[in-house]
Design a protein around this nucleic acid. Sequence first.
DNA 1: CCTTGACGTAACAGAGTTGGTTACAACGAA
DNA 2: TTCGTTGTAACCAACTCTGTTACGTCAAGG
Lengths: 142, 142
Amino acid sequence: MSSNSRLTVAVHVLTWMALVEPGRDGGAITSDELANSVNTNPVVVRRILGQLREAGLVAAQRGQGAGWRLARAPGAIDLAAVRAAVESDPLFSLHAATPNQACPVGRGIQPVLRQTYSRAESAVRDELAGISIADVLRETMG
Amino acid sequence: MSSNSRLTVAVHVLTWMALVEPGRDGGAITSDELANSVNTNPVVVRRILGQLREAGLVAAQRGQGAGWRLARAPGAIDLAAVRAAVESDPLFSLHAATPNQACPVGRGIQPVLRQTYSRAESAVRDELAGISIADVLRETMG
DNA sequence: CCTTGACGTAACAGAGTTGGTTACAACGAA
DNA sequence: TTCGTTGTAACCAACTCTGTTACGTCAAGG
């Protein structure tokens, strides 16, 4: 397993919302509906929607007949933003324990790796930034 | 934690070997020495060295006075090869459970995500491929 | 031939993550 | 006031990850 599926679930629910929302005159979308499409538990969906809400990508409404809405147009939500919303861990981690500082390699390698990993993160971010929920929806439907 | 530190440990030991090997007239390097620099247990190091050996990046010698050697010049070992040797899991995972096939999004989104994730993997691979153990050693030493 | 030191690997443990689940308080529209 | 939904805590089983102990295997060198 190792890597999680939060980005996948997040993109899935956003895409579903982008597909369904236009046909709902102001009606919000529930975590139950989304969970049905993703094939998981509504609480799992709400957990992820909560992170997307904190990032300003969706808005929640409470009370009876409530639910969720996209807070931006599907074309204005790129996957880099989605990933940032649901994933805070880095792609690669440094040493679990501080390496031996009496050794030149142990002393000097961490900044080098940090810079290298940072470049890899940027590469992924750039790649994901080039794709929007609108793109995903279009490719999914056609 | 989430992401593991195997790539970090692998690059660390390879860099250490590249630094020390020239001063050892044919003498091999032990997992004990490497573990001392990384500040971990020799078995952890041997596990990772075993993966590097399967990938043809290092060679092990057994018996008394045995140990490890680089199987290629440090300049011919790039970090993409190191990552491939120690990490088989993808950057991002698809759904834990198959999404609802009765839903257009559930049915069509996986190929789109697969392609997207594949491009992100390539971006990381390309980035890591541009850096060799010789580069890391040079930058680490000053 | 036998000692010795290192590899190779299985087994286990503690801590943490992940996805799923139940339960329930808070909320607001009708 | 009712009722459906969000928000969140709590728990669970399964898994990963790093570290650790233990021990068999191997080959160099006396």
